[in-house]
Amino acid sequence: MDIIVCIKRVPEVAEIDLQVDQTGKSIKEEGLVFGVNDWDNYAVEEAVRIKEKHGGKVTAITVGSAESEEVIRRALALGADEAVMVTDPQADGSDAYAIAKVLAAAIKEIPYDIILTGVLADDDGCAQVGVTLAELLGIPHATLVTAIEIEEKQVKIKRELEGGMEEELVVATPALFTIQSGINEPRYVSIMGIRKVAKKEVATRDLGTLGLSPNQVGPAGSFTTVERIFPPPVGEGAQILEGSSDEVATKVMDVFQKGGVI
C-alpha cells in the first residue's frame, strides 16, 4: 500500500494577536511560529500507521517556501519514507485550486494507492485542496475521514457528519481521503528523531520540472483571490450578567438561544 500524504506549513496563531500587513491582503508573519498543519499531522500519522500494518511506502509532499523543509523533515522523522518538496516563488498567491494543480503535477510521477491530506489547513481553512486534487487526478475521494480500514482493492472508511453521526463507505483504490483530526493520536516527534533524518534526501521540484507554466499557478492560475483581510470585531472580558436570580436566568436563556442551544 503506497501512500502519498500532502502536508502544509502553517503559522500557529492560537494565542497571537494577528496583524494585517501593508498589502492588506495577508498577515504579518514576523514573530510567528510555524509548524505542520494540525490536520496534516493526523494524516501523516495515519499514513505511517497504515504502512506499519500493511507495508508499502509513505511519501510526504508539500508545496511551499524553502522553510517548508522543516515540516517535511518532521514527516520523515514521524515515519515517512520519502519526501518531495515543490518550491517555486511563481506559485506564491495560488488559491486552493492552483495548489491542487501543482500537487497533481507532482504526484503524477509517484506511484500510489491512496492519498491522504488533512481536511483543511489552519491558515486559510478552505477544506478544498484535497478534494480538488482527487478530481484533477480522476480518483474517488472522501472528506472528514475518521477511520480507515484497508481491504483488498478497496478501503472501508468512516466519515464524520453533523450531529454526532457518521457514515460508513467503501471506496475503491486508488482514492484520496481528507483526514479529520482525532482519527488517531499522532506520535511525538522528538528532536533526536528529527536529527536522525537530517541527512535524508528531500526531492525538490519547481514549476519547470513539473511541466507547469507560470500562468497555471499563482494569481493568474487561481479562481479566487483574497482582496483584503481584517480582524473580526472583538469584545474584551466577560459581560457580567446581573440582577435577580430570575433575571439572570432569563439573560442566560438568551445566550443559550443565541448559541442555538435551546
Binding site: 483574497v226 482582496e227 483581510i229
Partner: peptide
Amino acid sequence: MYGGKMCAEVH
C-alpha cells in the same frame, strides 16, 4: 481565516 482570527474578502 486563521481559525477565525481574520476575515477575508474574496474576489
